[in-house]
Design a protein around this nucleic acid. Sequence first.
DNA 1: ATTCGTGCAAATAGTTTGCAGCAGA
DNA 2: TCTGCTGCAAACTATTTGCACGAAT
Lengths: 167, 167
Amino acid sequence: MRMIPVGNSAKRGRLSSPAVDADVETTVASRLRRLGQRFTAGRRALVDALTKVDRPVTIEEILRVEPRLPLSSTYRNLAILQQAGVVHRVSTDHEFARFELAEDLTDRHHHHLVCESCGTIEDVEIPARLDRSVRAALDELARTARFRVASHRVDAFGLCARCAAER
Amino acid sequence: MRMIPVGNSAKRGRLSSPAVDADVETTVASRLRRLGQRFTAGRRALVDALTKVDRPVTIEEILRVEPRLPLSSTYRNLAILQQAGVVHRVSTDHEFARFELAEDLTDRHHHHLVCESCGTIEDVEIPARLDRSVRAALDELARTARFRVASHRVDAFGLCARCAAER
DNA sequence: ATTCGTGCAAATAGTTTGCAGCAGA
DNA sequence: TCTGCTGCAAACTATTTGCACGAAT
């Protein structure tokens, strides 16, 4: 398993300190409270870790950043945070599940470049107008199937720069 | 069986008979041969089962249709067929992996309506022009990340008609 | 004090693999 | 005949859960 540099999101005014955006903290706390759940240190560490990386990460990657977190609590807390709408689980063809912060916490509707070789996922933003067209088309098709669309996903699969170089 | 007519090239008529299209048989056989693999009865049964259902199915669903297939051989053969480019593995947020025939065998570039409640997936076709726009936009974004796009995916998540009714 | 979270260890479950026999080219 | 496919059972591994202790309200 290779080391992946933990890059910081180029978001305006984002802290580079270990602390999480106070805004995000408040939102997370209130969403947890809504479920009768507490915003404990372990959960804060998870949100922290996910804030620092701007792409979906595996549990292993999270534990590499936060080695003090026990495996079982991490699974349990990611599930809770997912229920609270704070974390989004991204399914992949690779062996490990990946997690990211929910879009409404990052204010960045994005899509994914999924490397079929190493499983790494990069975030990208497609033009808003195109995204709206996709959504409209899906809504229209869903109508025929009486399917209720909640969200959509546009992903690209292929080879990341690193894996392409290794060939 | 939901067909949504769209301006996509519907080159070949679909059979409604239980047997697999002879065309598909030939293609599958040759792709297997390319890997030094045989087109055995078990593999034929798998292709058969996937041809009959027009959506990604779980192993359990396959075995319900073809109960004579042993579990381990099914996993092994699906992996082989995937390598041969005959079968495509669809990753989901649900517990089971799902499989479908490769698009170039069905001549139907399609996308998915994924039910977040029961995990069932329906196929839909979005307008070809929109699909091309999506692809172009992803190619453009990928250029920046030096990512090589091989394929893309446009999926909708929500509630299928059946699950929506149960609420 | 009581409820909820934690962390270890053990269990679960989808998937993979070793191996002996069988079958297709 | 000779590889390679099959099918059973056993192994593997990501994830989940039971339980007793600790923390927060």
